[in-house]
Design a protein around this nucleic acid. Structure first.
Length: 425
RNA sequence: GUGGCUUUAGCUCAGCUGGUUAGAGCAUCAGAUUGUGGAUCUGAGGGUCGAGGGUUCAAAUCCCUCAAGCCACCCCA
């Protein structure tokens, strides 16, 4: 049981400074779009009563069966680190009285989630998601809106190569009959199927449709498709979703075998992938409608629609498609001799007072070494003060991009810096 | 959770069939007749060779256990 001391727990990650610009981009894109679409932010606790998840996701779902971080606190309560966001949001919707606001209520959230599984590239025990929920209306137009929002977010980040797939899995009215139809189809094939499918046959036959075992693929083509067995209401809703997406020029593919792992989904389900993500960890976004969830949790029956985007995986793609994003330091201020220190510190302080980002380097190193650091650190401007400059009450402002530099009096410095920085003041 | 592969400096990797003070490139820091960057050259710092145990005169190198990472499955973000 020897344990390597002091390393991060399995399946977690440090988001180091070099990666933070990408996380900032993702968060800022989310907040810009939220405003544009009228979604308001909500935060819920990192842990919840275990029952919230076991009742919503379904006792037989993998999340409940083997992926939850569950613990008992000192008051003997069973609590669980949230494995997903929808159930807590729905809980908060009722508990926080959002039922009394104009419906539907549009919400978004961003934060960490926890699932106990074997880690892999792009799959963590502490993962990060951006999610959106629209609660209180079953209008298919909201399904379209949510999917458009997810699509827009990727576009906002400048990402392409996302493939969207859409399906409808019916509701509690028409799905039971289809489920039996599927069982009838697979029953004679059962002996030939993989062990997992044997279990799924009893537990959740729909999941047999997205089995990845190569040998089982040949049976899928002839399996009955749920889109052919929707009742009138579900079929009409699905048509409306498809028409809405086409009207907005959002490209998508129909995937009749797309089902979702959580029991609470009804009607519209969708997922998005990115071509460049390797292996099985290429799902970037997933979501759907969950008209039965509120009732399942014991609240008044209320429809809802939402999705979650995986930020960890999106960050990987962002990095490879937009390398070199930096923190955008404004000014790297250096001394030439030891006597310049006081003046440089004062000038830096003044600039900070005007809102500029400034690093002071008053070290002993040579000037070229300091400028090298300014460059590596990604500073836009270098501020140089030596004995000569001080004698004239001036400082040198050097633009690190085009190497142009000017001498400016101390009093003119903030304006000169602002002018160089695209007119900022 | 199941199966497999991997683990040497911050990063990417050498290190042959076990043999003296463990190497390279990049990165970091410093210097190149001492006030101007991204190049070049020189030098320096940095490793309990994932951890623990075993075999041996001797282990980064062989054996066992554990841990972590990766790949497939499971599942999904």
């Amino acid at each position: 049981m020897a344990r390597t001391p002091l390393q991060r727990p399995r399946g977690t990650q440090d988001i180091l400074p070099a990666d933070q610009p990408y996380w900032r981009l993702m968060q800022q894109a989310a907040e810009r779009l939220a405003v544009r679409y009228g979604y308001r932010k909500i935060d819920t606790p990192i842990f919840e009563a275990t029952e919230l998840f076991s009742r919503s996701a379904g006792d037989a779902s993998d999340i409940v069966l083997k992926e939850m971080y569950t613990f008992t606190d000192r008051g003997e309560r069973s609590l669980t680190l949230r494995p997903e966001g929808t159930a807590p949001i729905v809980r908060a919707y009722f508990e926080g009285g959002l039922t009394e606001e104009p419906q539907p209520v549009r919400l978004f959230y961003i934060g960490p989630y926890f699932r106990y599984g074997r880690p892999q590239a792009g799959r963590f025990r502490q993962l990060h998601q951006l999610g959106v929920e629209v609660i209180g209306d079953d209008d298919p137009g909201l399904d379209v809106e949510a999917i458009q929002l997810a699509w827009s977010w990727f576009k906002e980040l400048g990402l392409s190569g996302i493939g969207l797939q859409v399906n409808s899995i019916g509701d509690e009215v028409c799905r039971p009959a289809y489920r039996e139809l599927l069982r009838d189809y697979y029953r004679p094939l059962l002996p030939q199927l993989c062990a997992d499918d044997q279990v799924r046959f009893e537990r959740n036959p729909l999941r047999m449709l997205d089995c990845n075992v190569p040998a089982d693929q040949r049976f899928k083509a002839d399996a009955p498709r749920i889109v052919d067995h929707l009742d009138a209401a579900c079929a009409a809703a699905f048509e409306a979703v498809k028409a809405g997406l086409r009207g907005l020029d959002i490209p998508f593919a129909l995937n009749p075998t797309l089902v979702r792992g959580l029991d609470y989904y009804t009607r519209t389900v969708f997922e998005g992938w990115h071509e460049s993500l390797g292996g099985a960890q290429n799902a970037l976004v997933g979501g759907g409608r969950y008209d039965g969830l509120a009732a399942e949790l014991g609240f008044r029956s209320t429809p809802g629609m939402g999705f979650a985007i995986g930020l960890d995986r999106t960050a990987v793609i962002l990095k490879q498609e937009r390398p070199g994003e930096s923190d955008g330091l404004d000014v790297y201020a250096v001394t030439v001799s030891a006597e310049d220190r006081g003046q440089v510190i004062e000038l830096a302080s003044t600039l900070r007072g005007h809102g500029f980002g400034v690093i002071v380097d008053a070290g002993e190193a040579r000037l070229d070494a300091k400028l090298r650091k300014a460059d590596r650190r990604g500073a836009r401007l270098a501020l140089i003060v030596g004995p000569e400059e001080r004698a004239h009450g001036q400082a040198i402002l050097r633009d690190m991009r085009d190497k142009e530099q000017v001498s400016v009096g101390y009093g003119e410095l903030p304006a000169a810096v602002g002018k160089r920085l695209d007119g900022r003041v």
